[in-house]
């Protein structure tokens, strides 16, 4: 389904990043988020959800660990937990190509 979206040029990948407050791990995850968006060959939307402020959403999504980067548009949801600083690896995991490699 993502391929059909792609042809229309909308934000193709919608991810959610679950973090807890402003702990150092959360700040690292937010930095990584920026780099992922910049490195992606296609537009990516990564919504930030601070579970300390929005615990109900963590409950609904069944989040145990933070940071968690999650693609909830697919069934079953696809999740990456822990260290998301390896941009190339993250993009590959969510099936998105990297600017450098696609050039």
């Amino acid at each position: 389904m993502r391929t059909s979206d792609r042809t229309q040029g909308k934000p193709l990948l919608v991810l959610r990043l679950y973090i807890a407050g402003d702990a150092s791990a959360a700040r690292r995850a937010l930095d990584a988020r920026k780099r992922i968006i910049e490195a992606a060959a296609e537009p990516i939307n990564i919504e930030i959800i601070d579970i300390l402020e929005r615990p109900a959403e963590a409950e609904a999504a069944g989040i145990l660990a933070t940071p968690t980067l999650s693609d909830e548009t697919v069934t079953p949801p696809r999740r990456l937990i822990g260290d998301i600083s390896n941009t190339a690896h993250v993009l590959e995991y969510f099936g998105c190509s990297n600017k450098d490699t696609t050039a």
Binding site: Y18, A20, G21, A23, A25, I51, L52, P55, A58, E59, I63, L64, A65, T66, P67, T68, P76, P77, R78, R79, L80, I81, G82, D83, I84, N86, H89, Y93
Partner: peptide, 18 residues
Amino acid sequence: DRDELVVGDFDLAGLLAR
């Protein structure tokens, strides 16, 4: 049912918050 990959360090703040 979910695809899940754990890389590096994480915490269970999500669980505690819930």
